[in-house]
Every structure is written in structure tokens, then in C-alpha cells.
């Protein structure tokens, strides 16, 4: 029950950002929503199913380019974003069907290779993507700075709300039950009648959809994308760290982890510009060693209790 309250508080809290009238704060809130979408999505495959995907950036970039290219053709924003989701679902299902027979670090490396592959495709399909020159995405209309910031904030916020609802429904449903069985003992899961290939592929495809839609919103938000930017490996790594912060396996945890990360990163960036990635690295090591079940287990840890997942 408490996770629904936490999610409600987080969503309402984020929605208050435009009330401040501060465009910097709104930019941070938009970014937080974007990463929360990605962390919760990663949790579906990496946390719930136990397949550590490093393909997040592939779907982000795929969504950004799908939506961006459609926008240059004059397609409206909601349609181009929905299209990004559909394309990512299909592509992720195909990639998942092929790669999900690998396990552990083999799977991780193979998904990482997908990021490189899609980046190279985006780089070389110059006619479509503009290649290394990047792609300019036209503004819908001249809204003014604040109205435009609000538009993209609410687009990202709405996407987060949608992602959170879908993740929670999946977690509680028969699908989530199957994924949890697969994570814990895949052979035994098959033996009680679970079509593991089907469920894993579904989880991977779903984990791609919302990331791609976030990429689509991002492309229109920043008006210009290039392969190195939207297929950035950090877009793969950060959501994993965020899910670690929140405690792997919980989508609400991943969302909270994303917000904590974005806030912490901002503080660190401002104060320790030279050493920021070092601090992020140390945080990861510290988390894995001392809080493997995330911030949510901190109170147990402080009271010296054993933590069981």
C-alpha cells in the first residue's frame, strides 16, 4: 500500500514544478520525469525479469529519431510520440526474441551492442537522419519560453504517470507473477507451464516502449538531436544506477531513485564539476556493497536487521 502513497506524493510533488514559474526548476523536473520513465522501464526487464539490459539508450535513440523524423514531415507531436512507442515495441520484441536466450553478462553485452548498432545506422542513414550532422526538429508554434517548457514538462510527466501505472499493473498481474518466477528459476518456471520466451520478450518490448516515447518527447523538447546525443551510453547506465538506488525490483523505487539521482547529480555538478563522474561511480560501488536493496531498505539496515528481498 505504502508504495502507492509514495508514488502519489512523487507525482503530485513533480506536478507542482510549473507553479514555481521557474524555468530552470521545470527543466530539472522534466529531466527527472524522463529518467524516471527510463528507470521504471528498465526495472521491468532488469529488476522484475532479472535480465540486465544495457539497451535503454537504443530505444531512447530509436524513439527520438522515429518521432523526430515524423515531426519534420509535419506529423503532430502526440502522433509522432505514439508512433515511437509502437516502433520500439516491434523492434524490442524482435531484439528480445533473439537475445533473451543469453543470460547475465552475455545478455548485457549483447544489448549494449544494440546501442552501438543503432547509433551506426543513425550515423550512416544520412538521407533520413541527417547522419552526424544531426536532425533539426521544427517547433510546433511559437509558444513562448514558459508555455513551451510547461508543454514538455507535462508531456514527460504524463508519460511518467502512464509508465508508472503500466508497471504497477504488470507487477501485480499474471505477467508479473510469471516474470518473477522466471527471474528466480527459469527452468522450474518452464516446467510449471510458463512460456518463458513469450513473457521475457513481452517484458523487454514493454521496457522499450516508454523509453522510446520519452526519447520522442525529448527530441521535440530540445529541437535538435544527433546520434551521439540520443544513443549516449550514459542513457543506458544512469537508469540502472537509479533502479539500484531505489532497490532493484520495485518500479516505484526506480522512480524515486531517478529523482534522488537527478537532484544529487545537480548538486554534485555545481560543486564538484571536475570530479562529478568519480562521485557517481563511488556512489554506485557504495550502493552495491552496502545497500544492495536500495534506499528503501535503509531503515532496516540502520536497525541492524537482516534484509530479505
Amino acid at each position: 500500500m505504502s508504495k502507492y502513497i509514495i508514488l502519489g506524493v512523487v507525482l503530485v510533488g513533480l506536478a507542482a514544478a510549473p507553479l514555481t514559474g521557474d524555468t530552470y526548476l521545470m527543466r530539472m523536473a522534466t529531466l527527472a520525469c524522463m529518467y524516471a520513465v527510463m528507470a521504471a522501464s528498465w526495472n521491468l526487464i532488469g529488476g522484475l525479469t532479472g535480465y540486465p539490459s544495457f539497451g535503454t539508450a537504443a530505444f531512447f535513440g530509436l524513439g527520438a529519431y522515429t518521432s523526430g523524423i515524423l515531426a519534420t514531415l509535419g506529423v503532430a507531436l502526440p502522433v509522432s510520440i505514439a508512433a515511437a512507442g509502437v516502433v520500439a515495441f516491434v523492434v524490442a520484441a524482435i531484439i528480445g526474441f533473439i537475445l533473451l536466450r543469453l543470460k547475465g553478462h552475455y545478455f548485457a553485452i549483447a544489448t549494449l551492442a544494440c546501442v552501438e548498432l543503432l547509433r551506426e545506422i543513425a550515423n550512416s542513414a544520412t538521407d533520413l537522419t541527417g547522419g552526424g550532422m544531426g536532425l533539426n526538429i521544427p517547433r510546433n508554434a511559437d509558444l513562448g519560453i514558459f508555455a513551451e517548457a510547461s508543454l514538455f514538462f507535462f508531456a514527460m510527466w504524463g508519460l511518467l504517470a502512464l509508465t508508472a501505472v503500466v508497471c504497477l499493473v504488470v507487477e501485480r498481474s499474471k505477467i508479473g507473477f510469471a516474470l518473477s518466477c522466471i527471474r528466480q528459476a527459469e527452468g522450474a518456471a518452464e516446467m510449471i507451464g510458463i512460456n518463458s520466451t513469450l513473457y521475457k520478450t513481452l517484458a523487454f518490448a514493454l521496457s522499450g516502449v516508454f523509453v522510446a516515447m520519452a526519447g520522442g518527447v525529448y527530441a521535440s523538447w530540445v529541437h535538435y538531436i544527433e546520434p551521439g546525443d540520443v544513443f549516449d551510453i550514459l542513457l543506458t547506465i544512469k537508469p540502472v544506477v537509479m533502479a539500484l538506488i531505489g532497490g532493484v525490483g520495485s518500479s516505484v523505487g526506480a522512480i524515486v531513485g531517478a529523482i534522488v539521482y537527478i537532484a544529487a547529480e545537480e548538486v554534485i555538478w555545481r560543486n564538484y564539476l571536475d570530479f562529478s563522474s568519480g562521485i557517481i561511480g563511488l556512489t554506485v560501488v557504495g550502493l552495491v556493497l552496502f545497500l544492495p536493496h536500495g534506499l528503501g531498505s535503509l531503515h532496516l539496515r540502520l536497525r541492524g536487521k537482516a534484509v530479505t528481498p
Binding site: 518473477s180 518466477c181 528466480q184 528459476a185 527452468g187 522450474a188 518456471a189 518452464e190 516446467m191 510449471i192 507451464g193 510458463i194 512460456n195 518463458s196 520466451t197 528481498p309
Partner: peptide, 22 residues
């Protein structure tokens, strides 16, 4: 596939037990 065998009515226990531990 094993899941299909289960649907057809074949069950097996594992020599090395494989419970869903969590």
C-alpha cells in the same frame, strides 16, 4: 518446449530442487 509439456500434462520434480526462493 517444457512449458508445452506441462500444458499436455507432464510434470517433473528436479533432482536439484528449484523452488522460487523469494
Amino acid at each position: 518446449k517444457p512449458y508445452h509439456a506441462a500444458h499436455l500434462g507432464m510434470a517433473r520434480t528436479f533432482q536439484i530442487v528449484q523452488p522460487f526462493n523469494q
